[in-house]
Amino acid sequence: MTARYTFGGDEHIFVEVDEEMSLEAFFKSLSITNAVKQADIKGVTEICPANASFQIKFDPDRIHPDDMMAELKRLEESAGLAERVLNTRIVEIPVYYQDPWTHETLMRFRERHQDPDATDIEYAARINGYGTVDDFITAHSGAPWFVSMVGFVAGLPFLYQMVDRPRQIQVPKYLRPRTDTPRLTVGYGGSFSCIYSVRGAGGYQMFGITPMPIYDPHQTVSHLKDFMVFFKPGDIVKWKPIDRDAYDQAVEDVDAGRFAPVIRDVVFSLDEFNADIDGTNARLQEVLHAG
């Protein structure tokens, strides 16, 4: 895994940590961007970690692009020596799989789909070798996920599941993007899950919907009062399948200003995880449900 450095015009440096997605690449991208943040380099205006890469925006009037590049390479070296441990939080996100709203939407765009005779989740279950949709939901909601990038549009998280590669779910995007996706749709494309933070166009397969708002420009929702965007890269997410009654109740709680997501602080060690994936994930869930 050798990082590739390239300029994005005269104001950005783009660093591809690895061509392919892996937790190792994500962790490295997050570590270097954290190091860049702490180094407080003059002229840096944006620090954007992504799945297996990152991007720094800078003001070339304040630091020469070559000097900026040299700084980043130096930080990559020192970040590589740092302990691969992350102080972060785990969040439980309720998901109403196979809900009527994403179902209505996917039916409207059937001609843009690989398999017009199946729903998105039936298709995803089949091509990933699951006998039933329920088995597929168990896999999707069983092991936790890393928020590996926030972006595309305001507050939208990309999530990568914390399992070894043979267990990774992979699903192609729609053949042609939809012009509509319900807000808070839980989607899937490539090896990433996502939550659509706003209503709009989209190409990811639609599996369900969460009642929990993740972006609120008015900052009125109880858990978004401090900041309008809920997620940040490095957050750990555990999906919790819920039924219609629980969904309706949660929406009512959100509207009444009493919805409180389950959030716990955790320390995540990549080496510990690699040594025992299922054991680490089980411990994470214990933390989530303790107290």
Partner: peptide, 21 residues
């Protein structure tokens, strides 16, 4: 195709886009 990138030759593992890119 690298894992996570998608099968179209123009696909990459989802990454940041610079302004002007």
């Amino acid at each position: 195709p690298p894992f996570g990138a998608g099968s179209d030759p123009s696909n990459i593992t989802d990454a940041c886009y610079p302004y002007g890119s």
